[in-house]
Design a protein around this nucleic acid. Structure first.
Lengths: 311, 311
DNA sequence: TGTTGTTACGGAAAACGTAAATATT
DNA sequence: AATATTTACGTTTTCCGTAACAACA
């Protein structure tokens, strides 16, 4: 039994039971992978892979259990590497942040600026995707942390912590009838009034869109969503074009920068949303990642974060 | 990086940083162990062990973290072996039960009889000790499960589940004044009455002795405990000798077998106690171990047990 | 001075890549 | 026929034990 065998098994599963691809991915020969796996199977006295003749097709029942354990072992081995990196070069390394457009464009800039000042040697990457994709990236160690409002909290295998809360805001062109509302009317802006206009907002699965739909549904108001986009910049562009009334995340509207638009605060009409940061459960957190999280969520104590992740 | 190195590091720590002993325990040469560890340290780019000249003295700060991760890795590797055993010979193997005397003598016989019928090929061992020792045995994989009333629930690293509840019973010789109580008086047998007599009961740390002390203390009654023992058989023997009044676990008194004694039920005078079964957190549970636990605690669902342990 | 850890060295074992054979789609 | 896996085999590397050396207590 050795780590090499585990690595081969893991990669073979990841490459859809194709030994050739697994071997290529690991820069080694295909027969070597085959042999190592067979030797492991022999040592354990069971078949890990289901074979149709010579083709690997999937995992046997014991194989499923073995694969789970191997996955955990390799994840700990990865942790070992991270630990050594951490002690060798405390303030150097890479940080891959998986986030939605909203986070990348509106919420993270300040945090990242502060982080860069503290850890100038850490190489930063921002990768974007849908919340479900972000969760997947962290789970598969393609990203260190994910920042989003949806999906993270209910993804098994992830540990997520609350960062900050926000509400939606309605944006319209300066000549739009809704701008004529008195401020007290605006505060009470109701769904029925809003639903008189065509709406432009987020795609399903982004930035509280599910909550928006839910609110309309619960109040039996039919909303006419003429355009969906995954980011507020696109939404704002089409609102400026007069396509309809925009509903975007509050953080995405800045009166100084968005001169062509008027923001109408709607309070918690569409609920209060909590953006969360997620990391892989059981992952070793390098010091600068911990720092990044505390910058993101200043309310959280450093030790609280570490404990929640390790538990 | 390889499993061999991990094994060496783990064993060296366990043998108090004595490479020579570690090598002996692993049936290999001492220079080999030394070299492997140094190579691992070089690869990780850090010293795991604190060295005074050439002597290993302890773990460095990074070493502590590394050791933790290695411990987890090796524990998963052990799981892998158990998994293969499980699938190779579902109903063969060994089951080491660590328990207190009370459990071994009074609670387990029925369970073990039932278990043997179901898994005749499993080799059973009963090892006894104080609850703290039992916890230690399971934690260090010298035993598969521990059964006891004390200590298990609050030992970190263990997962414990409730089996059954019991109360204490007072035992006296047939000619003892307490036998003259009417049954209604007996039901209300109070501490003050009891404390008029010398008492014989369990040692600290056994079978709810802490609860007994607590009850006397809280009620400001001075108890005269003339003899302490770790098991009910000893206690009963001395009660028969007339040394005093015995307080033992309810399961340990059987009117048919204990002819020389009279049992006086005292209800929950000394509290209600829950015997628990504990296994090491994260350990892979072989099928027959799971069965044994469900025999011990018939109230628990099989899947509930598995889930509590894996979580 | 006895005990413990590291370095040096050489034979044995295993790891791994190439080539060939075999099975699958 | 093309793709994929296993077997065979030989080279290269790593492993591991003995012996010698070095440093503690």
């Amino acid at each position: 039994m050795n780590l090499q065998q585990f690595k081969f098994v893991r990669e073979t599963i990841r490459r859809n039971f194709n030994l050739t691809e697994a071997a290529r991915a690991l820069h080694t020969s295909q027969p070597g992978v085959s042999k190592a796996i067979i030797e492991l199977e022999d040592e354990l006295g069971l078949r890990i892979f289901e074979r149709h003749g010579k083709r690997l097709r999937g995992l046997t029942r014991p194989g499923q259990v073995v694969a789970q354990v191997i996955e955990r072992i390799m994840s700990e081995v990865d942790n070992l590497k991270k630990v050594s990196d951490e002690f060798a070069r405390r303030d150097e390394g890479a940080l891959v942040i998986a986030c939605t457009h909203t986070q990348a464009r509106y919420a993270l800039p300040k945090v990242i600026a502060a982080f860069r000042k503290q850890f100038p040697k850490v190489h930063l990457s921002l990768v974007q995707g849908s919340p479900a994709q972000l969760a997947h990236m962290v789970l598969h160690e393609q990203a260190d942390i994910a920042v989003a409002t949806e999906a993270l909290a209910r993804t098994p295998g992830l540990v997520s912590l609350p960062c900050y809360s926000w509400e939606h805001v309605v944006v319209v062109t300066p000549d739009h009838p809704l701008t004529q509302l008195t401020s007290s009317q605006a505060r009470a802006l109701d769904l029925a009034t809003l639903a008189q206009y065509p709406l432009v907002t987020y795609e399903r699965a982004f930035s509280g869109r599910t909550a928006i739909d839910e609110v309309f549904r619960k109040n039996h108001v039919e909303a006419d969503i003429v355009l969906e986009a995954i980011d507020a910049d696109v939404i704002k562009t089409y609102v400026e074009l007069g396509l309809g009334v925009g509903i975007i995340a509050g953080v995405a509207y800045d009166p100084r920068r968005d001169r062509g638009l008027v923001g109408i605060p709607v309070g918690r009409l569409f609920g209060e949303h909590t953006t969360r940061v997620a990391v892989k459960a059981g992952a070793f957190l390098r010091d600068y990642i911990l720092t990044f999280i505390t910058l993101l969520a200043p309310e959280l104590e450093r030790e609280t974060v570490r404990e929640s992740i390790e538990a």
